[in-house]
Design a protein around this nucleic acid. Structure first.
Length: 357
DNA sequence: AACTCCCTCAACCGCCTAGTA
DNA sequence: CTACTAGGCGGTTGAGGGAGT
């Protein structure tokens, strides 16, 4: 169908609204209602197109609009609904009285999406990102910090056990991510002989636990052969990581629970009633059932992924922490509050992270 | 103080759908 | 059935302002 006529056809005004225009629009709608938006500008004496008037009214001037920062409850609601509805902003807005679709969309794009990406979740599927490159910067930073921490362990014996555990978890996740990568069909398989970069990255991590390259190769071979061969397990390469983890538990060297955001996030503060009405699972909001896992296809690399090129010092975790908190600093009362609702903080406020910083 | 960079969000653009003649 | 319009929606843009240097 034909496109509706554009406002600028008749020299109609565009751009920001003046207070006078706002007043004209408000007074007209209060008196007569909006009726036909197309006819409204003429009746109200505005040199604007009807579309512009409608947007101004619905997004800004409507008396029932709630201004101001989004509450933690609203944030949770948006996350939950987005996991079910996707980018259906108007549908999401119907569950948030006083909020407009435009406002929610902006909030998503400027805050929540970044948070999800920083936490290693795909903002569209709400599943853990399965492309290794998306999580490598984070894993590298984590591994480096763990290495630094271990080097300091003699000075701080109390941290020793926790540091070792975290390092092991980071290493296991790296293995898992790498295995997942190797199990990707087509393109990834073709890169099996050209994995220098990933190998180097993994070596960096594994070196911190004194694992040699030959051990890495053995581990690769062991894991792959175990999964693909002797265990008679059919692997769906698109299975989510926690399913693969259960597969990996059959290995001779069973990993501990990998570094697991879900474990951290499954605390009850993150439960928004668990699953949606259609049984969808939200990894951030929690659900004990495995049955609702949506099998995601590996997401394409997201150019908006924050890049953390520095991996050499103990500051990398802190840098990531700053990145995460900076995205929350403009709402919900500013800088990282003590609220446990802010899920990135839940991880970063791990006591050991405080010890590090 | 001056400049640059980055973030936020109001507003616009273009497409889609429902309704109607 | 076709053509057209109005309203609605999601994606994108860019002005303004704050933070950093």
């Amino acid at each position: 169908m034909g496109r509706s006529p554009c406002c600028d056809e008749n020299g109609l005004k565009k751009g920001p609204w003046t207070p006078e225009e706002d007043q004209q629009l408000i007074q007209h709608i209060q008196k007569h209602g909006h009726g036909s938006w197309r006819a409204l500008p003429k009746l109200a004496g505005l040199n604007r197109c009807g579309k512009s008037c409608r947007l101004r009214w619905t997004n800004y001037l409507r008396p029932d609009i709630k201004r101001g920062k989004f509450s933690q409850d609203e944030e949770q609601t948006i996350l939950h609904l987005h996991s079910i509805l996707g980018n259906k902003w108007s549908a999401i807005a119907t569950h948030l009285p006083g909020r407009t679709d435009n406002e929610i969309k902006n909030f998503w794009n400027t805050h929540l999406k970044k948070k999800l990406i920083q936490m290693g979740f795909d903002p569209m599927t709400h599943q853990p990102r399965t492309d290794i490159f998306s999580s490598l910067p984070y894993l590298l930073a984590l591994a480096n910090d763990m290495r630094d921490l271990i080097m300091e362990q003699h000075q701080y014996p109390a941290l020793d056990e926790q540091a070792m555990r975290l390092q092991a978890e980071a290493t296991q996740l790296a293995k898992l991510e790498y295995l997942h990568y190797l199990l990707q069909p087509t393109a990834n398989n073709s890169s099996l002989n050209g994995i220098t970069d990933m190998e180097a990255a993994l070596n960096l991590m594994l070196n911190s636990s004194s694992t040699s390259k030959s051990q890495l190769d053995q581990n690769q071979a062991s894991m792959i052969s175990s999964i693909l061969g002797s265990n008679n397990i059919i692997v769906n390469s698109s299975q989510p990581l926690h399913h693969q983890n259960s597969l990996l538990s059959n290995l001779s060297d069973p990993p501990q629970v990998p570094f697991n955001f879900q474990t951290a996030l499954n605390s009850e503060e993150y439960q928004m009633g668990g699953q949606g009405s259609n049984g969808n699972y939200h990894p951030l909001l929690g659900d004990d059932s495995d049955d609702h896992w949506v099998i995601p296809s590996p997401p394409a690399s997201d150019p908006s992924i924050p890049h953390h090129p520095h991996h050499g010092s103990g500051n990398s975790i802190r840098n990531l922490q700053n990145d995460a908190s900076s995205s929350t600093s403009s709402y919900g009362g500013g800088a990282r509050t003590s609220s446990s609702y802010n899920w990135p903080e839940l991880f970063f406020e791990d006591p050991i992270m405080h010890e590090i910083s």
